[in-house]
């Protein structure tokens, strides 16, 4: 089983659109949405939910008001201003447990809380593992790991897992990259796009993940496209495609038409070429394996 993850240093570069295109081209692969903070892939795949589970990803303090004597020691010792007027604030609580320790009557307890939900679904293109992080929750890296684990379970007898990666370079993106075979970085031709490409490439190299680059909406800024191409050359990374800005893609999305009709657009045709390149890198012995 091989694992491909589509990443981008920043959000909004077209990562999810490319992922969906790949899923339609692969026809049968397991898919996973590792962008648990702002998941979007399900909007294109129209999944049928098979199983949904609460995910306990963090500890937070819970108060038993019956026991509280209002001594105020918790408030005095909390370094995060997470207890105000003797009431714990779950958004601010870091789960350190100091308040529970200083409470003389045991009215405060550290408890594991649900920070999101992990979901397993079926789609036209194969099984799909995804999740949703609750608003204001933390520790999304752990939920990403859960999504990956579910995908691996679903994909035991499959050849390929395609993961829509988390944006950025922090904990969630590390959790979505580590242990995969190849990453396709979708870059945007802008100053910040190049900067973010450099950083995500650093993470990929650190984890020994082979990387390819494609530029989305390349014609919106030919100068920066040129700079990114230069950068790839210098870094010895293959730039395998330049996808044009194509309003037809937006139309497909707005009208919620199928992913197949996305592939009929000009941009879709380039996505198909990019896919061929990705597949020959993932399966050098030939694509009949798929």
């Amino acid at each position: 089983m091989r694992q491909l993850v589509i990443t981008s240093g920043k959000g909004g570069t077209g990562k999810t659109t490319v992922t969906a295109g790949f899923l339609a081209l692969a026809w049968r692969a397991v898919s996973a949405d590792a962008d648990v903070d702002a998941p979007n892939l399900h909007l294109l795949l129209h999944p049928k939910v098979l199983e949904e589970k609460g995910f306990k990803g963090a500890k937070t303090v819970v108060k038993d008001p019956e026991l509280c004597t209002e001594c105020g020691k918790c408030e005095e010792h909390c370094r995060f201003q997470a207890i105000q007027n003797l009431t714990p604030d779950p958004f601010r609580c870091e789960g350190c447990g100091v308040c529970a320790y200083v409470c003389p009557v045991g009215a405060l307890k550290l408890e594991e809380v649900e920070t999101g939900r992990s979901i397993v679904s079926r789609t036209k293109y194969g099984p799909f593992s995804h999740a949703r992080l609750y608003i204001g929750a933390e520790a999304s890296g752990k939920l990403v790991t859960e999504v990956r684990k579910n995908a691996e379970k679903l994909g035991e007898s499959e050849k390929l897992i395609i993961i829509d990666g988390a944006p950025g370079i922090g904990c969630p993106v590390i959790a979505s990259l580590s242990g995969t075979d190849l990453t396709l970085i979708v870059a945007e031709p802008s100053v910040s796009g190049l900067h973010d490409l450099e950083r995500v490439l650093g993470v990929a190299r650190h984890f020994g993940v082979d990387a390819l680059v494609c530029i989305n909406k390349y014609d919106l800024c030919p100068e920066m496209t040129g700079e990114i191409a230069h950068y790839c050359l210098r870094e010895n990374i293959d730039l395998i495609g330049k996808i044009p800005f194509d309003p037809a893609v937006l139309d497909v999305m707005e009208q919620e038409r199928s992913v197949e009709s996305l592939l009929q657009t000009e941009a879709g045709k380039v996505i198909e070429k990019v896919w061929d390149n990705v597949i020959s890198r993932l399966f050098p012995d030939g694509r009949e394996t798929l």
Partner: peptide, 25 residues
Amino acid sequence: PGASCPVVEAIRGSDYAILVTEPTP
């Protein structure tokens, strides 16, 4: 970006919030 705990800390105490979006699903 996002809606996790650093976002909550950043917007706490604001008088107003501007939400930026784009016309896609």
